[in-house]
Design a protein around this nucleic acid. Structure first.
Lengths: 268, 268
DNA sequence: TTGCTTGTGAAAAACCGGTGAACCGGACCC
DNA sequence: GGGTCCGGTTCACCGGTTTTTCACAAGCAA
């Protein structure tokens, strides 16, 4: 649900022809990838936040096995595939038992390599599924994916599913302008029909609920002709507590409020 | 679901020499396995509660691909490995993209086949390995996994097997919202068909029995469009007069509030 | 000003979940 | 065999919620 398309991949190999051919395909598919020349400390691998690691165990020499074992043990969420030429059954079995998810012979068609990586990542995603998403806090807002809900000072602001997904998408992009088409594509899951106003309508509902619970912040900004941007901004003077209640009550009556501040492109 | 060592495996193949050699190894490793001669209805596969399926796609003929796709889609928890002779890159890629977890050529050493099956099954086992057989107490409710039953003040509330599993799943996630699809997937063991209302029906039965034995607690909360959340709440809370007034004022101001009434969200 | 984009409110349509009851297949008993 | 109980599944209905759609007002850029 989060990152739909691309896979983050690191390749440990030195076989330049294999690397160029594979690299081209990876580019084409839009995967983020980087090439490593040899063994790398575990914590650096962790920091890369990879989905998968493709390694030619022969470039690591004898310590390759130990490396493989440590990596598989230390990063449970990482898919590990060995891709190497000339291997025996015993080696392959050893690699797989040590924690590798697949063992591919060389030469192999890059398309198959990618399909195998996909298969490994797919399986792993299913297993890891939950728990990976912590709450996201921004200004007075707390967005909790595990509750499908956003909170202001511990209180739910009563978002529906779509509203929440929209807010989450915008908040994750924090500061970036997202085009309507992209928003629709990601939240609704399919292409936006020409003239569809759903995104606008949902932005309005979101703004209403945000405003109602967090009155002196503006969270969503309009970029004319493009889309929307999430970026909390404190607005106006600090309001006295008593007045606050009144303001909330009147919030709806204010038909012509300045809340919809359209922001010029240059402003960011 | 609870077997510790072995793997439950089904093999769809007709190659007798392969089957005998592999079978012997499987016996030796203590895996439960059965051989199927051809295509099998999905629900029968579900009933077998397998960890993995090893299939020679060539014995299924042209419908093999469709079978593969259906199985992978319907039973996400099942590891699927194709083992077949003479295949092209395109076929392998197709199989993997259709949802297969691995594609093994024939002939292959049975030890490698087993290592690959292990690799496929490994992650999901780790994820599913919930050891906590200890009773779980929440509000007036005591959930005892060893008895497949829940109790209120020492008295069984008479849950059926499914009802109990549903309750256990929800209670283990305590406070988290779980989507219907996930619930179905975990309790029923396969993918929920579109429009299936089983989860709802069981939640109702569960609520009835809980209510009957623990009248002033609400355990299961509905999240519209998403799923359910287990979070015991005492019912019949006394509302303070002043708060009451404010509530009424707000209710007036927000004449037709979009706040979901069905959902009662509280932060922890 | 003109043409296009966005905000807004309300109505229509689609969807969802609670509920009661029918239905189905297996186990058990007569 | 027939009958019954039991757990589970499916169905239809209903009221409520959510999403989509529409018409119009307001806003922005040329």
């Amino acid at each position: 649900m989060t990152n739909q398309a691309g896979i983050r991949l690191a390749v440990i190999d030195t076989d330049s022809s294999f690397l160029t051919v594979l690299g081209k395909r990876l580019e084409g598919a839009g995967w983020e990838h980087r090439v490593l020349a040899g063994s790398v400390p575990i914590d650096e691998l962790v920091a890369m936040k990879l989905n998968a690691l493709l390694v030619d165990i022969s470039v690591l020499g004898p310590e390759g096995w130990e490396f493989l074992e440590r990596v598989c043990g230390a990063i449970p969420g990482l898919g590990v595939l060995v891709c190497t030429s000339q291997s025996t059954v015993a080696q392959r079995v050893r690699g797989l038992r040590l924690g590798a998810d697949d063992w591919i012979g060389k030469p192999s068609h890059p398309e198959e390599v990618m399909a195998r990586i996909e298969a490994v990542v797919r399986r792993r995603k299913r297993a890891t599924a939950r728990e990976d998403v912590g709450p996201l806090v921004s200004a007075e807002l707390e967005i909790r994916p595990d509750q499908y809900q956003a909170f202001v000072s511990g209180q739910s602001i009563g978002l529906t599913r779509r509203e929440f997904e929209l807010l989450q998408l915008l908040a994750e992009a924090h500061g970036q302008v997202i085009e309507r088409e992209q928003i629709y594509q990601k939240v609704w899951g399919y292409a936006m029909a020409h003239g569809d106003r759903s995104v606008d309508v949902f932005v309005r509902k979101l703004r209403q609920k945000l405003q109602r619970h967090s009155a002196n912040w503006r969270y969503i900004h309009t970029h004319f002709g493009i889309g929307y941007r999430f970026d909390p901004e404190q607005v106006g003077t600090v309001v006295e507590p008593e007045l606050r209640v009144v303001e909330e009550q009147l919030a709806e009556a204010e038909a012509l409020s300045e809340e919809s501040v359209a922001v010029d492109l240059r402003s960011r």
